[in-house]
Design a protein around this nucleic acid. Structure first.
Lengths: 230, 230
DNA sequence: GCACCATCCGGACCAACAGTCCGGATACCC
DNA sequence: GGGTATCCGGACTGTTGGTCCGGATGGTGC
């Protein structure tokens, strides 16, 4: 950076979590200053919702490159400034979308029932987790690629990434304390690359990537190959 | 070469040709030629050199984002059109630089003496190869990151990538025919991510990434006896 | 119902970028 | 030295991510 007045600082400003579930905007705005809890204005929530929907629509119909913020704003029927005020940057927007799509898995991993949630043996939790994450990745390869592109260097500081990484590392360490679980967790996550997923997913077998990742993990753990039904 | 001593060990262990490499890939563009081998004009060769050196200088002093083609052209003392005529695109420029820096390893792997070249057991060749590739990656993390950024989707069609992938896959398959060597090769290469390398390399231990990758590979192969102390 | 003010909106605006083009310069060959 | 294919330079274009601020809007207290 250091080129001119335009540094990427705005990107860090990324406004709070995107709220909406599948249906309609909701109010939320966690904000940081909890004391001055400001409820998000109705039009703001509406716009955020519209922007997210527009983003996924563009993502679906064109490639990841096709999603410029001008287009997003236009399709959402809002001004460009609005997009930036909500999401801080292109990376923030994509990240919000990604987070929205992985929130369920995150919750399930934290509080849900086994085998995803706590309670099951590490190996089974691992397989379940990779199944879930793989499913999300397979369904959002384009979004993933665009996000990686936009995030660039900051990817590894990202909160979502760190959550997945910690979870994965914990499970690996539980099963194989002798290995470098931290690095292996990075290695497994490195495979979740949008472009690679697209490269490896044949038309007829949408779950192949996930199976490969699971197999990779089992090999790392020194598999006894539990015959599981996928 | 002859500029920054970026890749240390690999450059030593690999018998290298001196820096006077004549030309990189001519990046398609003009030379759909055939037998009519066109000799590059002297000024053209001079300029390509200047551009490459300017690129690495900018890469060294600023971040990867700092390398805009305008700046490269300016620093090289050539026009912008020249850069594009030589390298086709930003991605092409970075790739040429990357290729220049990994050519020695490539040759050593193909024709060199064991353990890098043919002749040694697959496991040892694998370790040597990862050592070499890791060395290059550690010394060029910024360049790597910039290249990934620029390549985006096309990364997996890249000739260099495919060469590394095939080599890795072959070695893995030789040692463990029961595994999905193709996927595992992708997985190992996925770890060679510029940003990740920077994230994982502590100031005091520049070779840690390589060691981790080697360990990963050994774990995959089901190491019982490490072929050498890591 | 009204008025007030924080909050938010819109889109004009900006700098920077990758990539194109073509008149003019130049190296090479004879 | 002359001729020509090749190459050079940098002005030019179209698009992008990101900023800014006058003006509109929603929420709230009355």
């Amino acid at each position: 950076m250091a080129e001119s007045g335009t540094d990427g600082r705005a990107a860090q400003r990324v406004a709070g979590r995107s709220g909406g579930e599948t249906e309609g905007p909701d109010r939320g705005q966690s904000a940081e200053g909890d004391a001055g809890r400001r409820v998000e204005r109705a039009d703001a929530a509406r716009n955020r919702y519209a922007v997210l929907r527009a983003t996924e629509q563009l993502l679906a119909e064109g490639g990841g490159e096709h999603v410029s913020l001008d287009r997003v704003a236009a399709l959402a029927g809002v001004g460009k400034g609005t997009v930036f005020r909500r999401f801080g940057s292109r990376a923030g927007l994509l990240q919000a979308l990604l987070e929205e799509r992985s929130r369920d898995l995150r919750d399930a991993v934290t509080n849900g029932p086994p085998p995803l949630g706590p309670g099951a043996p590490a190996r089974e939790r691992l397989l379940a987790f990779l199944d879930g994450l793989g499913s999300i990745a397979e369904g959002n390869a384009i979004l993933l690629a665009a996000h990686e592109q936009a995030c660039a260097e900051d990817k590894y500081d990202d909160l979502s990434y760190r959550f997945w990484h910690r979870h994965l590392g914990t499970l690996l360490a539980a099963e194989r304390p002798d290995l470098d679980a931290d690095f292996l967790a990075h290695a497994i996550l490195a495979v979740f690359d949008g472009a690679l997923i697209r490269h490896l997913t044949p038309p007829g077998d949408p779950r192949r990537f996930t199976r490969s990742v699971q197999e990779l993990a089992m090999t790392l753990l020194g598999t006894a190959a539990p015959a599981r039904a996928l």
